[in-house]
Design a binder for these strands. Structure first.
Lengths: 216, 216
DNA sequence: TGTACATCAGTGAACGCGCGTTCACTGATGTAC
DNA sequence: TGTACATCAGTGAACGCGCGTTCACTGATGTAC
């Protein structure tokens, strides 16, 4: 491993102009810029390990020292960015769910599962945050995602759809299966066709949902 | 993040004696010691990222420079240790499978799945190697594991057991589901009871295997 | 209206650290004569 | 049998690098009188 790849993209990414400083009273805006810069890096990188303050600063087009006005140290940044990214994922799934009419609860689960797959494929680094070793970053995180899906699955049951597993178990199977399939898809370079993953997601769904006619 | 945890365990782990050098002509034995030291580290660590040559040297009780007699650089070590660990997993599953009589192909799959779960729980870092971003380390790796399981599942089919999925798909569901469940179990600290994971593995198996009576 | 001063957003240079890697070495064990 | 030498397994000190973090600073924008 030679000392390291030349990580500096000389120009501070996108804007090569020295960066316009935020107006008075809006210094908190940099906090958001830092978070999304770090988020972008997490998406490309393979997880939290490769994340460096200097890299984030480069990506955001600021000096490394400037981060310390908004985060006391690296761990605080990491926790914040992980929560931020995680929140975005959950928000997205919630929104997607609301786009599907209540009369089609299975369609809602399916839409959310697909959205999860797409999100995971677009952000290869993300799944490591969700299921990787915690390192004691906000531990309540994955449960919000689980709760969302358990809710959607319970709605199916209330609508008379039979599940082959308890909703909690079914949610785990879906998320964990989808996430694993995405990871495998990323490890092979053959085709990064989303459809392969979505097909797999549908197959998981059909495993979990008992679509035989109720026997009455 | 303070500069770094004091990573030196002053004494070179286990043997505090300065280490007995290998006899003439057996210099290659150090290669094995390095590999298993690195393997131990991978098990504790959360993947390849935290692995350092100096750390491996500390774990093995040798000088960092001594590694270069056996591996040209860090990447070569990493590839070698990953292949080594992966090979051990596959060997274990193969052995476990042979302990179950051919007359019970479902039992064989189950035993292998359980062994996979246990192995994954004992080596928290391992699953990242299997499904984490490849970084172009020997890409043929995961397929050997898949082939093994596909073989066991096909044996079930030949014995008249119906699968709800094609064997290839079923293998993915099992491995990926089990691995994900293990990852979740590791992220929560509540109880690291293996049984919870093994129960889940059984549930996956019952999803994949259609155990209703053939309809004739 | 002017002017002194406080506050804000952000910077540049430096620190000590662990890292991967190199290089000249050490000292025990074998081989040639 | 002795002795000079080659070979082996492995070491210690040093290198340049990127990292996290600190600290004194800069210069624009607001406020008090």
């Amino acid at each position: 491993m030679t000392p390291s790849p030349p990580n500096h993209t000389a120009a501070p990414d996108e804007r090569s102009r020295p960066r316009v400083r935020n107006p008075w009273g809006q210094g908190d805006r940099l906090r958001g810029e830092i978070l999304s810069a770090a988020g972008r890096l997490l998406g490309e990188l393979g997880g939290v390990d490769g994340l460096t303050l200097r890299g984030v600063a480069r990506q955001a087009g600021i000096a490394p020292a400037s981060i310390y006005a908004h985060f006391t140290d690296k761990t605080e940044l990491v926790v914040a960015v992980v929560d931020h990214e995680y929140g975005q994922l959950v928000d997205r799934l919630r929104a997607v769910g609301q786009d599907v009419p209540e009369t089609d609860p299975v369609g809602r689960v399916r839409a959310q599962l697909h959205a999860f797959c797409r999100h995971a494929m677009d952000n290869p680094g993300l799944y490591r945050l969700l299921f990787g070793r915690s390192d004691r970053h906000s531990s309540a995180r994955p449960s919000a995602l689980m709760d969302l899906l358990v809710g959607s699955l319970s709605a199916c049951e209330r609508a008379g759809v039979r599940l082959r597993l308890r909703a909690e178990r079914a949610a785990i199977v879906l998320i964990v299966g989808a996430h694993g399939r995405v990871a495998i898809q990323q490890v092979r370079e053959d085709t990064d066709k989303v459809d392969i993953v979505l097909d797999f997601a549908d197959e998981l769904l059909s495993l979990v949902i008992d679509d035989e006619e109720p026997e009455r």
